[in-house]
Design a protein around this nucleic acid. Structure first.
Lengths: 211, 211
DNA sequence: TCTTTTTTGTTGCATATGCAACATGTTTTT
DNA sequence: AAAAACATGTTGCATATGCAACAAAAAAGA
């Protein structure tokens, strides 16, 4: 159901032709380097071929928000983010990034290349699953208390596991940014949740206790 | 840039053919009636042809969240919302709704009908702008205080107006739901913002004061 | 290895916010 | 026109949360 790569289903052979036809550019980024900044009116789409990155924003108070963790095959660009904001994509490991102009992807070319319709379909599914992701985060952030934010996020991570155990994909510092709460207040709340028997935790390994 | 309807650019003539080919169903709903509830594994997409509706969720505390205000030409369905949650679409006025199976839209049919590629392109752009919308709301909800939430939402509404004046598209009660904060606390904060000279307001008409 | 940086864990304090409860005003229904 | 339903406006109170500051542990770098 969920597609792994935006290029899924496209022949290796067609792939090269397509990249040339699209004037795709491949670039390398070292860890901690800025891949793009100020994604405003950037009609370019980036695809992470290898490595990881964070999409972040610093607001006027200097609070960092991780908008999204980008992994291999992640896609980013103007259409995927709020216009007019100071959003940057920062490499969290060495990265290989492919840039393609959005127009090439969204517009059907006259040649009617076979790979083009596959790509369109993939992008459609990609956008759909992105919307589901955004709605998940929205559901978490719409919770009024840190406790409820934590619990609904944990619930999300635990759903697939019958033992209701999972490993945090974040450092606790990053988790606080993701939930948009103060880190120390969050740590305090996690301690409370443990003491009150809602969760067990050992480092980043957490188990949800249900009755 | 922004498309008005998902059917934009499709000839009146083709439209009828297409709706038949897609087995589209048109239904009528009176005000306050539930159009759909529990949008889980519903592989159907709804398009509001006339009228307005709210996409809402009630969490276990009974707090209502307005996920989205739907107007004429709005589209809703599984791909646009978080799976597994108690999401409903409620008519806020008499509504005409068209239902189409998602498969018909996303999959390219063998006949290669001309309207099909137009529709795909429209859906793509629609999803893109939806993502931008979601990111806007995320930016607001990621603010830590009610004051900052209000200000960033107001900022959003004021950007297009040189007088920095706008009319709230919500009742204040609904606004509190949209911002995911307590209504009375929000009213208090709005009063503070007025007293401290950040905004002027008269009913739903609000002016942002900038220095 | 040793050094430096980052993350984790904790606490005191001021205050922002949720909650409950109520009064008033406005809109909708009968 | 009267009644009912809903929106707005306000307040007191308990507490959850942001903020600052610091110590200890862990990870990364030299």
């Amino acid at each position: 159901m969920e597609i792994k790569s935006i290029f899924e289903g496209i022949e290796e052979n067609d792939m090269e032709k397509m990249l040339k036809c699209f004037e795709a550019r491949k670039m390398l980024f070292k860890k901690d380097r800025t891949i793009v900044t100020n994604i405003i009116n950037v009609k370019t789409v980036g695809i992470i071929l290898s490595g990881t990155a964070n999409m972040v924003r610093y607001d006027y108070n200097g609070n960092r928000s991780i908008i999204e963790k980008l992994e291999t095959n992640s896609v980013f660009g103007e259409v995927f983010s709020r216009l007019g904001s100071d959003i940057s994509v920062i490499a969290t490991s060495d990265c290989e990034v492919l840039f393609i102009d959005y127009e090439h992807i969204i517009k059907r070319c006259k040649k009617g290349c076979s790979y083009h319709s596959i790509l369109t379909n993939n992008v459609l599914q990609f956008l759909s699953s992105k919307i589901v992701e955004l709605n998940k985060r929205l559901e978490i952030l719409s919770k009024r208390t840190i406790r409820d934010k934590l619990l609904s996020y944990f619930e999300l991570l635990a759903t697939d596991d019958p033992r209701r155990t999972f490993t945090l994909p974040f450092t606790y510092t990053d988790l606080a940014d993701y939930l948009s709460v103060d880190r120390s207040a969050m740590m305090r709340e996690i301690k409370n949740l443990k003491e009150e028997g809602f969760i067990k935790s050992n480092g980043k390994r957490i188990t949800l206790i249900s009755y």
